[in-house]
Design a protein around this nucleic acid. Structure first.
Lengths: 199, 199
DNA sequence: CAGCATTGTTGGCGACGTCTACATTGGGAG
DNA sequence: CTCCCAATGTAGACGTCGCCAACAATGCTG
C-alpha cells in the first residue's frame, strides 16, 4: 500500500472519509477508542483538518448518530409489513431492531448518549421521531383494528419500545448473547401482547 | 475555606475520599467529566497519589460501579415486600429501581458500561447476581403462587427486567421526564402482567 | 529503636482536543 | 481568461489528561 504519493492537498471529500473511518473505528474498537488525531492519520490528513468539517469531536459524534438514525429508520421501515396481524408484525419489527442493535452496538450507544445538545438537536429530534414512527404506526394500526387495548397510543408505544430497548441493552451489556436475544425476542413480543398472567 | 494548612502528608483514608469525590463529580457532571488529576486536586493530594489506590482510571470506575451495585441491591431489597400480591409487589420494586436510575443515572450507566473487564469481574458478577436476585425472587414467588404463567423463571425475569431497564433508559436519555416515568411505571407493570390484548 | 513496606510527591512522557496563523487550492465575478 | 477570495488543509502551540519512575515522608513491626 504505497499511499505516500504526494496527496493532492485537497482531499476531495474529507468529511465523508472522516465519517466512514469513524464508523469503522466505532464498529471495531468502540467509541472510547475514537480519536480525531488518529482518524486524521488514517485518512492521511493533518491533525487539524477534521476541525474544518466538525467544529468539535461532539459534532462528529452527532453526525454519526444522525446517520445511524437514518439507517435504523430505514431498516425498521423495510422490516415492517402493514398487512400482517399484530403479533408477527411486531415480532418482525423487533427482530430488525435487535439486529441493528447487535450489529451496531457502539453506534446505538452513541445515538442514545447525547443527553441534550442544544445544537443540531432539531435534526436529531426529527430523526428520532421518524425512527419511533415505525413502532408507533404498528401500535396505532393494531389499535384501529382492535387487536390491542385502547388507551394513549403514545404510551403503549413507549411501553413496547421499552421492552425492546431493554433486551437490546442487555445484549449490548453482555448478559445476553446475540443468539439468545434473537431466540427470545418472539417470546418477548408474545408475552408483551398476552401478559404474564395465566390465561 | 482555608485548607492550605500543611496537610499531614498521609491523608488518612485517601481511597474513601477519592471514591466520595468521584461520586460527587459523577452525580454533578457525568462520567465524562471525571479526571483523576482533577479529583486529586479536589481532595488536596498530588496528581499521582490516586495511583497508589487505583492502578487505573478503570479500576476506580469499577470500584464505583461495585459500590453502586451494593446500594442498588440494598434499595431493591428494602422496597420488596414478599407478602404483597404480584402486581403491587412488582410495582414497588419497579418504582425503587426507577428512583435509583433517576437519582444516579451516571452511576447506573457506569455499572452497565463495563462490557467484560477480566479483572475484578467476579466481585462484579456476584454483585449483579445479588441485584437481579430481588426481581428473580419476586418472579419465582409469583410463579409458585400461580399468579403468573409457568415457564423458565429466568426468562420471565429477563423479560420483566427488560421493561424496567427500557423505561430507565428512556428517562436517562431524556425522552421521559422523571415524573412521567414514575407516573407511568404502574401502568407499565400492569400491562406487563395483563398484556396489551383486549380482554 | 531500626528497618522496611506503605503512602504521597515531583517531574516527565506521549497523546489528546482545540486554537491561531499560515499555505494551497479551485471556482466564480469582472 | 484572469484575478481574487472563500474554502480547505497544514504547522505549531497550549493546556489537560493518564500513566510511569525516582524520590521522600511516614508509621508499623520485629
Amino acid at each position: 500500500m504505497s499511499e505516500s504519493q504526494s496527496r493532492p492537498y485537497h482531499h476531495g471529500d474529507l468529511r465523508a472519509a472522516l465519517l466512514a473511518g469513524a464508523e469503522r473505528t466505532l464498529l471495531e474498537k468502540g467509541v472510547a477508542a475514537l480519536s480525531l488525531r488518529e482518524l486524521a492519520r488514517e485518512v492521511g490528513v493533518s491533525h487539524a483538518a477534521p476541525g474544518r468539517h466538525f467544529k468539535d469531536k461532539q459534532a462528529l459524534l452527532n453526525a454519526l448518530a444522525l446517520n445511524g438514525y437514518e439507517r435504523l429508520a430505514q431498516a425498521l421501515n423495510a422490516a415492517d409489513d402493514p398487512a400482517l396481524p399484530i403479533e408477527p408484525r411486531l415480532t418482525a419489527l423487533a427482530r430488525a431492531y435487535l439486529r441493528f442493535a447487535i450489529d451496531h452496538a457502539a453506534l446505538l450507544e452513541l445515538m442514545y448518549a447525547r443527553k441534550h445538545d442544544p445544537d443540531a438537536s432539531e435534526q436529531m429530534a426529527a430523526a428520532v421521531e421518524r425512527t419511533v414512527g415505525s413502532l408507533a404506526q404498528v401500535i396505532a394500526d393494531a389499535q384501529k383494528r382492535g387487536e390491542i387495548v385502547e388507551g394513549d397510543p403514545e404510551f403503549l408505544t413507549l411501553l413496547t419500545g421499552a421492552g425492546l430497548q431493554g433486551i437490546a441493552d442487555f445484549t449490548a451489556g453482555g448478559w445476553l448473547t446475540p443468539q439468545a436475544a434473537l431466540d427470545g425476542i418472539d417470546a418477548l413480543v408474545h408475552h408483551l401482547l398476552h401478559g404474564l398472567r395465566p390465561r
